[in-house]
Amino acid sequence: MAQTAKKQDQTTGGFEHHPLDDLLRTDRIPHIWCPGCGIGPTFSATLRGILASGVDLGSTVMVSGIGCSGRAAGYVKLDSYHTTHGRAIPFATGMKLANPKLNVVVFSGDGDLFAIGGNHFIHAARRNMDLTVICVNNLNYGMTGGQAAATTPHMAKTTTTPKGNPERPFNLPLLAFAAGATFVARWTVLHGRDLMESVQAAMTRRGFSFIEVLAPCPINYGRRNKELPLVTLRNYQVNTIIKNEASPAELAASGSGPIVLGRFVDENRESFLSQYDKTYRPQLAPAGKE
């Protein structure tokens, strides 16, 4: 027992202030996510990206929908809003338009953003709404126990596709690009630094930014597809290739070839608000911006 105590002392050095603790509601940690869940590293890279971007934290807001990833809003020490299933983006849209000084980050899961919230996603992208949308893609509905999602690979097993998924999944970067997103990137939880840099870039640019993050769901997805968490991570390591500016059409996340990661789209197009101000509120539009 005395030995254990000594060990603990050694490892923490009596110093337990994690570098991200200032951005966490530490009174709510440990979080609800399962051991090995990929939301944690995604969330952590997001927070590091926000910090690195240098944006004013007092005017930075996180909006989440429902599901495991949606709980992120409850752990971040920023103004944070945990809304209804699929509706984080329109909520965030109202917030951004009401107070354009806010930096609004939408952090949610694939089920929330692309099935029930799919319509909102494509329209916010089309409008080039000034939002940073981070999607934790764990290929299934984790919170409800592992049901098929719009991102579940073909023939993968979930509780609602016990013999395999007969459907085909979305290629999220292609969907985002086709809908009009002006910044599109994809990383995995293993690519923490790249992910952080993409978040940083997204935070400091205007327009609709979308970052997909492939993340393991060991308990609900991995278990049913005979994939141990370290196997999933190994897959992210050996079966991915980084191709910045790759054509979004080649980015299907499942299939025979490697999964393509990178920053695919980064273009300048006027955001909704700047177009609106120019057209309808010239009295408010700052001269020479964008």
Partner: peptide, 22 residues
Amino acid sequence: VFIQMEDEIAAMASIIGASCAG
């Protein structure tokens, strides 16, 4: 600001967001 949202679900969500922004 006026915005025509993609459906009434989004319209309702947007006004709650706007109100939370003051």
